[in-house]
Design a protein around this nucleic acid. Structure first.
Lengths: 169, 169
DNA sequence: GTTAAATTGTTTAAAAGTAAACAGTTTGCC
DNA sequence: GGCAAACTGTTTACTTTTAAACAATTTAAC
């Protein structure tokens, strides 16, 4: 139900403007100040499109892999803390954990000293999955960030962590 | 239907582990290599949570404001090019444009020289909305990125644009 | 000039993510 | 010890985003 106004200007006057190109839009935005928030969004979208491409057909999604890896590094971590750390909403985390548990990649353990909480641990299959995909993710990352040299890469990593509040100063 | 395995270890043995903290998870992840992709995701989520907070109750969402601004800077740009530039899928862009058109903030124009395309232009109200919110977004950005000094801010902006493929070298 | 392929945007259906509500448990206060 | 508040995760309902399908138009190839 979009309203399409057909251009009614005098077509005899050759003032049909050339279509605005993507580069023109980018140039116009690049001239603005105070756009890091926006730049982070765009960079993230651009990078993750490429990541999805690289990892198409993988047995685990990017999110799933990240979760498994976090658990592998921190056995027994609670579901809610993981969700908060990764900025994932709790219902989403519940769904993700359900799926991974169904696939026997992880298990939920309710500790006796706090019956509300759910602690997560990898199964052997989960460990194997992490071991299998860690180099694949690394290779994808290396390829995708080929536009940055080593210095730039490390600098970007540091600044992002700082912006995210992860780097204690 | 989550499977909750209650811990059946001998509770008399005081080996109940301390709960893994968010900081421990962060520390474990910070020790990994090749995590810029992940860091971009986390930073983006963290920053946008704060942006939403700052702009709660605004007349336009972040996405809407961005679109209006792009159109203001590039009158006549086509919907699909805008979608591609901002990494928004075409059906989503259609919905966003529909909403903004309904609010008379922009208008669609079908040029006579290409009847498939839709060119976008701001209305006066749209221009006014951009003018009203530009300083608000700028103030929010300044506040949120207070953890970075000027050099760091500019460096981050440059690196993100490069990572996004926006910076031509 | 004709036809096939590509382009441009919209609609529909499906997937993904979130807000609100809920239930059980733990903690803090008196 | 009792009760209220807070915590922890799950479920339900809703919203947002995306994949697939579609239609009209334009471009490219012959």
């Amino acid at each position: 139900m979009a309203t399409k106004n057909v251009q009614t200007d005098n077509p005899l006057v050759d003032e049909a403007r050339a279509p605005v190109t993507k580069q023109q839009i980018i140039d116009s935005l690049s001239g603005l100040e105070k756009t890091v928030g926006f730049s982070i969004r765009i960079a993230e979208l651009a990078i993750f499109e490429q990541l999805y491409q690289h990892l198409k057909g993988s047995e685990v999604s990017i999110g799933e892999f990240t979760i498994l890896r976090c658990i592998g590094l921190n056995p027994g971590l609670r579901q809610g803390v993981l969700a908060d750390t990764l900025h994932v909403k709790w219902p989403s985390m519940t769904k993700l954990i359900n799926a991974l548990e169904l696939r026997r990649l992880l298990k939920r353990v309710v500790p006796l000293n706090n019956r509300r909480s759910v602690e997560l641990e990898l199964t052997d299959e989960g460990e194997a999955m992490v071991a299998k995909y860690t180099p694949k993710f690394r290779a994808a990352e290396t390829d995708i960030f080929s536009m940055l040299n080593d210095d730039e890469y490390k600098q970007l990593e540091k600044l992002l962590r700082k912006a995210a509040g992860w780097l204690q100063e």
